[in-house]
């Protein structure tokens, strides 16, 4: 019994990370209709960025998150402005191919600069510190990631529901053409949207680098997890991605409990079952927007 409660809690917390990383992907699809194949590689790039920032300044990676998030926002804004905005004029396939190309370039650049060896972000004793409740040990790091994730979701929700920018974003998701008739330069909004998406990737990427060793090719698996969270939750729904991420985390956690080789498999299985039985995901577009 205790073991199962432990499994569920670990799964829930792991899910917090998937939800955070899935959110960046969910946003770029929701607002710009861009399926960002390089999502996982940007996540890894953010981890390397944090490595550079913290080794240059001596900052703890947990503090350096602020710098990384800001830089990633600017990166996302610039990427959309220079490359992606042009590609979305060429239909839905075009940004897919462009981000695929970016993914390959990023692999090579990261390998060139940082070699293929695994690196890690050091946050000292915090990484292994844990909260003990009876027989259950819960790491402070997963707890932190989970709550940061909830905070990011809440802030984003506030932005989307209660600001002028959020209103315009919802309008674009509904009908981009009519939004442009309102005098809105939708490409500029896209830039802010990609900036926001990459800022979240910056937070997720830093935590990724803290919780596990990373190397230039680590992004592929992270893209898959993020994608699974988005699909399970329902494409285009922000809160769906949170639920999807948590579902994926719990599935993996139960898998690991069955056997060490079964964790990821259990997650893929749940993803596959959703694709087969409920392709619209937990929260489809009807019950929630953006």
């Amino acid at each position: 019994m205790i073991a199962w409660i432990d499994t569920l809690i670990q799964g829930l917390l792991l899910g917090g990370f998937f939800a955070l990383s899935g959110l960046g992907l969910s946003l770029s699809f929701g607002i710009m209709r861009i399926v960002n194949i390089a999502h996982g590689d940007f996540l890894v790039m953010a981890a390397y960025l944090c490595l550079v920032v913290s080794s240059l300044t001596g900052m703890n990676p947990l503090l350096a998150i602020v710098v990384v998030t800001t830089l990633m926002f600017l990166f996302g804004y610039g990427l959309q402005k220079t490359i992606l905005n042009k590609s979305i004029d060429g239909g839905e396939l075009s940004p897919l191919l462009i981000t695929f190309g970016l993914s390959i370039i990023l692999h090579n650049v990261l390998q060139e600069f940082f070699s293929a060896d695994a690196k890690s972000l050091d946050v000292g004793a915090f990484e292994v510190a844990s909260l003990n409740i009876g027989q259950i040990n819960i790491g402070w790091l997963p707890i932190t990631i989970f709550f940061v994730s909830l905070v990011v979701y809440t802030i984003l929700h506030q932005i989307v529901e209660s600001t002028r920018f959020g209103m315009i974003v919802r309008a674009i998701v509904d009908d981009a053409e009519t939004t442009s008739l309102m005098g809105i330069n939708t490409k500029k909004i896209n830039c802010l949207g990609m900036g926001l998406s990459m800022a979240i990737v910056g937070i997720a990427g830093t935590f990724f680098g803290i919780k596990s060793p990373f190397f230039p090719l680590a992004g592929g698996l992270q893209l898959l997890f993020a994608f699974e969270a988005v699909i399970i939750g329902g494409m285009g729904s922000i809160w769906g991605t949170l639920l999807g991420g948590i579902s994926l985390g719990i599935a993996q956690s139960i898998g690991y409990r069955i056997g060490s080789g079964w964790g990821e498999f259990a997650g893929h299985l749940v993803f596959f079952l959703f694709l087969l039985l409920k392709p619209s995901g937990l929260l489809s577009k009807e019950t929630s927007h953006v």
Binding site: M167, R170, A171, V173, D174, D175, T179, H289, V290
Partner: peptide, 8 residues
């Protein structure tokens, strides 16, 4: 066809 924004 009016084209109102359904999420607004």
């Amino acid at each position: 066809g009016r084209r109102l924004f359904p999420s607004l």
